[in-house]
Structure formats: structure tokens, C-alpha cells
Design a protein around this nucleic acid. Structure first.
Lengths: 249, 249
DNA sequence: CGAAGGCTTGACCGCTATCAAAGCACGTGG
DNA sequence: CCACGTGCTTTGATAGCGGTCAAGCCTTCG
């Protein structure tokens, strides 16, 4: 899975922004393919299946997950419009993929994709860059799952789901959450109850404001960053945030 | 004195034996480079540094880690002889790397590496394969950190550290653990106390047998697989089981 | 309007973290 | 060779975060 948008890596966002108009970019390959429709809940492929295709999400959202022995589910990522699934695959899918909401995708044969990349050197940097972004996201997720508290996880998650145009950041940005609480829980390594309680707590503190079941408004961006456990590197010149005293319980 | 790591030495010899005859493999690139020595505890590079080099571990072990805000450390991986650090890097290192024991490495400029890969198409499948393996390992780690109990984590870890020649598996394989308990804890998302207690419990059950501070003998491989939470799920009591199909990727 | 599924809230419990101290291995120097 | 110090590991006691179980509420849809 690949997420084109990651607010934690501004350098990369910049390069992604350049991809749209570029004629020789990965998305251009998909543009010729017909658009397919998947209803909410429908499965694109299962973990372990032979990896015949790559997919580009045109519109909508996917969840990427693994199931272990006694039914426990781990969501390793969410994909949205512009993301491409399957660049990091060899012979078999490493995970299953389902549509969260009604979703339109384009599909590309893996064999043809490899041929295109082999014959078209300009594509290789982008393939490589997407793999690296995917790797960086996986490592951030390991940090989250390994050492962050429930509150830090939820705050990190909300920040990651924010629209990432710089102008949109800061106060009153509305974050869309198409997935269910169970999806969020399985992504953050928590239970639905803990996700729910943490959201409530953030709302009570006035940091976020619930806007329907599948969206929240960010009221205090700076506090959210603080509580996410990510933003406190000393000597780093990111002047936009005024840090008040963090209350650690 | 640093322990003579027989197992890791074997590991290196084996992989070299397999890859050695291959003229166009990644390790062949490194072979021309001089061998450097890093003492136990020494740092190869820091997270955030400009990524000037890739490294091949010739002999010894490295830990790869990130530090977050208030000093919490997350070890995202251990590397041993034959492994290559930095294939998934763009401009900056995503993590820091330190030698766990006295370690010999070879270094290769990233620029030269990219040039070699660009000019030598036979290398690309191996680069790609290593990236995919790294990605698969990261996903398995996410599953571990997200949903596994302390016992499952430790069992999974021990299995992963086992020498992987099929003949060596099963009873009485000795697993070398050059890293400290703190390293293991920071890798598994636990504390040293929990790691220690879990090891003791496994020893009391007769599943493993401590062999000095930095090694354990695997006494009941099948049970270890069962307890790792990865293999098939058996509700009934089957005791020691055959381990067919335990690892599939 | 009622059923169903998702979400929130509450009570309680257990796993693992935390705090603390004792045990061990190993190197150093007398 | 032994005494001693240091750092790592083990073991024990306690506490707290988040999981589990159980209602109750809200939204959607037939």
C-alpha cells in the first residue's frame, strides 16, 4: 500500500504534487484503464492470492489488512484517491484489501506494469520513491504501535488523516473519517471502546469537535501535535506551533 | 570479550556460499570495498543524517532504531551478516544504526550504488526483492506490535532469530541473542522486565533452555510456533506438533 | 415504527508497566 | 587469586492503562 499524502513528510508531499501534470508518471499508466466500481465492504483481493494486478484508487477509500490465527485483524493502512496498491509486491499479496465506502479503481496487470517500468527509466524514480514512502509510513506505524499511548495514537491518526495543503492546516480543518471505529481500532492496535473514549476526551478538552459520525473538526492543531508525541524535537525550526505546558497524567 | 558468534559466522558463510558464485548480485558490488570495523555500541549513522552510504554487514550485528520525543526508543530491526542497510533510503536516513557487538562492515556510496543499479539491469530484481522483504518484515512487525501478547511476541522473536537452514530447525537448535534484553524489549514493544519474565516462563515450561546470557536452546519448536500466534490455530491440546506450513510468505 | 448495526458510556479485571531490590557475570586492580 | 564495582538480568510488589463485558443510545433503513 502506498499513501501519496503524508503530512509528516513535507519533502515528499512536494514531489507528489509534481506528479499530476507529469506525462510520464505512474498514474499516467493507469489512466488508459477502465474504471471499476467496488461497493462498500467488497474485497479487491485476499492475502495470499497470486498478485496479478496493481490498483489505483480513483475515488473512495480502501483498508489494507492481515488476519492472524484466531481472527485478530490488523489494518496496516488506509488508501485514498491517488494512492496505488501493490507496488511492493512479489508473487503474492501480503494483505487483503477491501473498499471502505463505494470506491472507483483502475487496475493494471503486474506483468505489464513491470514491463512498463523496465522499458521506461523515467518511471523508476517514482516507483522507488513510492516504495520508500511506504517504508517510512510502516516505520512510523511501528513507532506508534510500539511505544505510544492510546491518546497519542488517536492524535497521530487524526493528524495523518488531515488534508495536507498547508493552508488547510491549523484551526478548523475538517478531517474526514470514512472508516468505522472498528477500522480505526484495528489500525491503531486498540479496541473500539478505547478509540471512542479517547475521542470523547479530546472533544471534552476542546481539541476536536465531532462533526457527524464520520468527520471531526480540528480546533487546536498545536495541542493535537503535542499530544501526538511526534512534534517535540528540540532545535528543529518549526516555528508555527506555540507550545503550552503539556499535561502528562 | 565479545563473544565469538559462531552462529552468525555460519549465517554469513552460508549466504556468501549461495550468492558468491553469482557474478551480478548486490553483495558483489560491496566485495571490492575495504572492510571497516565498528566496536560494540558504536554508531554508523543517525536518523536524519544525509544518507551518503549503504552498508553491508560482513560479520556481527546492528540495531536499527528511532527515538521519539521524550527518549522512548523503538528498534525497528536487527541486521546480521549478509544484510544490507539503506536500500530503502532516499535523501536522509530514516533511522539510526549502531553496532551491537564488534562488527565488520563494507560501505558503498549511495550515488555509486544508484549508478550501478541503473546501468546494470540484472541487479534490479534483487534490489526490488530486498525492498519487498523489508516491507514484508515491517508488516509482520506491525502485526506483532498491534495484536500479540507478550508471550506471543517473545516466541515470534525467538523463531525469527533462529538459524534458518531447514536441517537445523526442530529440536535443540541454539539461538544466538547478541543484543541485550533492553534491545529485545525495545524491538518487541515491551519492557526488559516483561521480556525477562516471559523468557523465564518459557524456560519453566521446558520450551526453551537458557544457554548463557546471550543464547537459548529451543527444546520444543512446535510449541514455540503454536505460542507465537502465527501458525494454524488449534483449539485442542496437541502438545508438540509438526511444524509444516508454519512459515509462508 | 421497529429492527439492526454502529457508537458511546460504565463497571470491572487483567496484562503489562513501574518501582524497587537482589542476583549474576565480568572486568579491574590489589 | 580474590575483592570489588559496574552494568545487565532476574524476581517481587504494586499500580494503571487499556481490554472485556454489558447496557444503553443514536442513526439508518425497510
Amino acid at each position: 500500500m502506498l499513501q501519496a499524502n503524508n503530512i509528516h513528510h513535507l519533502r515528499e508531499v512536494t514531489s507528489v504534487a509534481l506528479l499530476g501534470p507529469e506525462p510520464n508518471c505512474l498514474q499516467a499508466l493507469f489512466r488508459k484503464q477502465p474504471v471499476e466500481h467496488f461497493a462498500a465492504g467488497q474485497t479487491l483481493f485476499f492475502e495470499g492470492d497470486i498478485a496479478k494486478h496493481l490498483f489505483e484508487v480513483v475515488e473512495g477509500s480502501l483498508r489494507i489488512f492481515k488476519i492472524i490465527s484466531d481472527g485478530r485483524r490488523v489494518i496496516t493502512g488506509f488508501l485514498h484517491g491517488g494512492d496505488i496498491v501493490g507496488v511492493s509486491l512479489k508473487s503474492h499479496y501480503l494483505y487483503s484489501a477491501e473498499a471502505i465506502v463505494d470506491t472507483r479503481i483502475r487496475r493494471f496487470s503486474r506483468k505489464a506494469f513491470e514491463a512498463e517500468v523496465a522499458s521506461c527509466p523515467e518511471l523508476r524514480p517514482e516507483v522507488f520513491a513510492r516504495l520508500c514512502d511506504e517504508m517510512a509510513a510502516a516505520q512510523d506505524q511501528m513507532v506508534l504501535l510500539s511505544r505510544k499511548s492510546a491518546e497519542e495514537r488517536v492524535c497521530t491518526f487524526l493528524l495523518k488523516q488531515m488534508p495536507c495543503e498547508p493552508g488547510e492546516r491549523g484551526y478548523n480543518a475538517v478531517v474526514d473519517l470514512p472508516m468505522t471505529r472498528l477500522d480505526i481500532a484495528d489500525y491503531l492496535g486498540l479496541t473500539i471502546e478505547t478509540v471512542s473514549r479517547t475521542m470523547t476526551k479530546l472533544a471534552q478538552k476542546g481539541i476536536v469537535c465531532p462533526a457527524g459520525r464520520h468527520a471531526v473538526r480540528i480546533m487546536k492543531y498545536g495541542l493535537l501535535v503535542q499530544l501526538s508525541g511526534d512534534g517535540e524535537y528540540f532545535g528543529d525550526e518549526r516555528g508555527q506551533i506555540a507550545y503550552a505546558g503539556a499535561n502528562r497524567h
